[in-house]
Design a protein around this nucleic acid. Structure first.
Lengths: 207, 207, 207, 207
DNA sequence: TATGAATGAGCTTTCATTCAT
DNA sequence: CATGAATGAAAGCTCATTCAT
């Protein structure tokens, strides 16, 4: 019910995401996209413009949908870090194809739009870095190097997009919980009761 | 001075690695490879077979140079895990282009050679998994899920190939040490004195 | 005047027939076909598929246009044989280029479509063989070997495609009559009044 | 015993004949010829020169080995015609590959050497025509058109190269006899005792 | 809104040939 | 004698894109 009768433009975008994720931007022809979306090539150009424009929109969407919720994370460093991991993991599991494209195809963007996407990414990483820095300052975390830890954890959580399947061995909740646990461990803090899902499930108390 | 007079075949392969890493397999034309290597297109075909054969050789080399030393890691679980992280990080820092290709271009291989590379990769991951399992059994590690931990750590260490630069803020030794520390933390074990580089540095080994 | 405004696809096919007949399939480049047809190479591919598909269509058309009328030949063996020779000679004179391609380029077909064309050819030859066999049974023909005679006569009549010209010494009617005469002689029957053209000319048929 | 230790040049020529006959001149690469002959490409050039030179020698050999014995045929028209058919059929059966190349690849020759080969072919056809003309004058043959008969019969006999196999249903003697019989029938003369093989077998009398 | 037609530039690969050793 | 190396040209085919209708 949420989305009946997908619009033509959306159909094209979905097809493109699927194909870019599977074969890469350079490895995907617009003919294949049009076929997959069930439109003619000329129609494709009518709706979405250039192949690169398709990618640009995809990349910016990919990054901003990660960034927007991250901006609103609040709480103490442990809570914030947990929330960031949770958001990142869930999004990379649920929108894995889009996330994979976002991760891989920076190189395929024009200089101008690469800069735009990089700015978003930098802001996103900054949020992670700041959280860790705050946690270290508060004595919650102990890491060899703040920046390194941020990058390492981001990479670790991003990997989810490559293997998660809703039909897999673990539920998404379990996966997310595990990643929060591992992340907090990595940061030298105990794997406390701070997992957002757990918190939500419990009813919120610190316990 | 270390390597004078690179052979033509090697020059081609280096050029291909560089370009595949930067623009992807599909995004790289053989003309560009030939140009970069300083040979004509026809000469390129005299030395290497198809563009895909170029990739195949690259991928298999990439995986086996990771696998070979990993097979010979010994010691208790903590030592072994530390050594695996060290090897992985160092290789991804030193041969970052090749490693990036190895990571990204599985999709560009034919079914047959993809299977061959995947077999190597599976063996490699198995070594990590086994080490973690052993560490858990020995009481050294505590993880939410062994398999998940292995994948997560691999992903985390692989990321090094994307940002490490010899002219960066940290030396490779520092980077490696930091990753070992974070890995052991993630596994719930203390960051003891087991880092190979550290061990070598303090214990007064041969060199 | 007979055919105004040839379609693009037809222009391409005609050009291909002309060139394949003259230089052979392997000796003809698609660039030359496109030039000859007055289109760009890319346009050529918009209309026809592969170069091989061009040949396939040509070969099947070549054989079926020979086979279709042959299937409907009726009368006593002498009449039927005369009609077969007449049809074969006329077609090889009128569509000489297509027939030459049909004769020469079986080797250039893929296994699959070669089989398809060979099936048509076999059926065609079977009609000739059956006619001769019937004539022998009826006492009209005397040949050393039925199969040999069929092949020999086919080859003989096929040759017309190599030398006939509408501006030559003999009219097509004369050529056809001569081949019917020689064929019946070869078969040991008199060159009676059974030539289709002759019959039409004398008997005062419809036209 | 007749030919042990084939010379390199001969090996190359045989390979070329085989391949040209099967795939055509334009469809055969020199690399394949070299491979088939077991030499390097450079060696091939050392021994036989250009691909076109290879074809030229082949074509001229093909025609002159047909022409030379034909020049020496003697006897009355029936005997001569019978001998010509016998020679043509036997050669096209025994050297079928070379004959097929000779028949098909005139188009692949340069203008100059095509002229040379055509001169030989014209002389050869002239012998056939003269024989038929003489037979007609002598009252032995009756044909609608001398030239047409010559061409038709040549084409008919040439066909042998396309289907004869030493492991086939009929011996070469039988095939040749049948073609002589059919030829004489075509020419309106009885299938008398003039077949060369038969004559040789009998001991020569007219009977 | 929708599409068939059209195209220049590019793709990967093979071609016949030469030449230094 | 023999060969690996090298090459410009051409092969068949696909590319992303435009445009008239």
């Amino acid at each position: 019910m949420t989305q009946t009768q997908l619009g033509t433009s959306d159909r094209i975008h979905r097809a493109a995401v699927r194909l870019f994720a599977t074969h890469g931007f350079a490895g995907t022809g617009i003919r294949k996209i049009a076929d997959e979306a069930g439109v003619t090539v000329a129609s494709l150009y009518h709706y979405v413009g250039t192949k690169e424009e398709l990618l640009e929109r995809m990349m910016e969407e990919s990054m901003s949908q990660l960034l927007r919720p991250a901006r609103q994370v609040t709480g103490d460093p442990v809570q914030r870090l947990s929330a960031l991991v949770d958001l990142h993991v869930r999004r990379h599991a649920r929108a894995s194809q889009l996330c994979r494209v976002g991760d891989t195809e920076l190189r395929s963007l024009s200089r101008a739009s690469r800069a735009r996407v990089l700015a978003l990414r930098d802001e996103y990483q900054e949020i992670w870095r700041d959280t860790i820095t705050a946690g270290v300052a508060a004595g919650d975390f102990t890491v060899p190097d703040t920046n390194l830890a941020a990058i390492a954890m981001l990479q670790m959580c991003t990997g989810v997009a490559h293997w998660y399947s809703p039909r897999g061995r673990m539920t998404l909740d379990q996966v997310s919980t595990a990643f929060v646990t591992m992340s907090l461990a990595l940061l030298g803090g105990g794997a406390g009761p701070h997992h957002p899902a757990a918190a939500a499930a419990e009813g919120g108390g610190l316990a």
